[in-house]
Amino acid sequence: MILHDYWRSSAAYRVRIGLNLKDIAWKSAPRDLRTGEQRAADYLAIAPQGLVPALDTGAYVLTQSLAILEWLDETHPLPAFLPPDAAGRARVRAMAQAIAVDIHPINNLRVLKVLKADFGAEQPAIDAWVRHWIDEGFAALERMAPDTPFLSGDAPGLADICLVPQWYNAERFETDLAPYPRLAAVVSQARALPAFADASPDRHSDAG
């Protein structure tokens, strides 16, 4: 499989983790978001939104990280990203979406560029914006987190796959993470696993 990604994209980071957890061989096709490569005509032909990630399965191209992760779970059932019961699946999806739908979209690069270019926001204000929404989301997740090793249960799953990249972003923007000890414990355990460690932006071939 070929993953069109960017080394520091949270959404692409999620899919790298998912592919690694499923032990699926894949290759990176980097798209540098800083230079606008994601808006090139050849890429828009396969990913009309001009966003990363996009996963070329060999048969078709998938976009949107959560959709890709659920496809991976349906086509490669083990290890499962979601619990076996309906209530458990809803709970894990809720935590994943609290990150991927509520925190991440208003803090991604294209939004921050608009804040600066169209609304005149200076970098300190942009950094404060990012931290505000991370804090609001993490405060809720800290309350939602179950008393299990991972957000998804005894093994990492969809919610953990979303949490670790967002935690990386929180660190980048120097967010005070002390108020979130339960989340910190989950992140620490996840990062100790090769599937998460190998997907880290710092280990990406385009890092820098």
Rank of each mutant, 00 (worst) to 15 (best):
Q64W: 09
G50C: 06
R89V: 03
D102I: 14
A128Q: 14
L66H: 12
S28D: 04
I126H: 05
W71M: 13
G120N: 08
V111I: 14
R31D: 04
A40V: 01
F119E: 12
L69F: 07
L115H: 10
I68Q: 13
R39M: 13
L51Y: 05
A100T: 11
P77E: 04
N108Q: 15
A54R: 00
A94D: 11
P79S: 05
A98Y: 01
D135F: 02
K27H: 10
L66M: 15
P30Q: 02
G88L: 03
A100L: 12
G50N: 02
E37L: 07
G36I: 03
L112V: 10
D135I: 08
P77V: 05
R16M: 09
G36M: 06
K116R: 15
W129R: 06
A67I: 08
A45P: 04
I106L: 15
K27L: 07
H76F: 01
L112H: 14
Q97N: 15
A54F: 02
G18R: 00
M95K: 07
A41R: 12
V92P: 04
R110G: 04
N20V: 02
A121K: 11
I99V: 15
V92Q: 09
L19T: 03
Q97I: 06
E74I: 09
L78N: 12
A25L: 07
A40E: 14
L33H: 00
P83G: 07
V130D: 04
S65W: 08
D118V: 03
W71G: 08
D56N: 11
W71I: 12
V52L: 05
W71P: 10
A121Y: 14
G18C: 05
A140S: 13
G137Y: 10
K116G: 12
R110V: 15
M95V: 12
D56C: 04
R14T: 01
L69K: 11
A45D: 13
N107F: 02
Y60S: 13
T63G: 03
R39V: 11
T57P: 02
Q97W: 04
V130Q: 11
A80P: 08
N108W: 01
A29N: 05
G137H: 13
A41E: 15
R93Y: 04
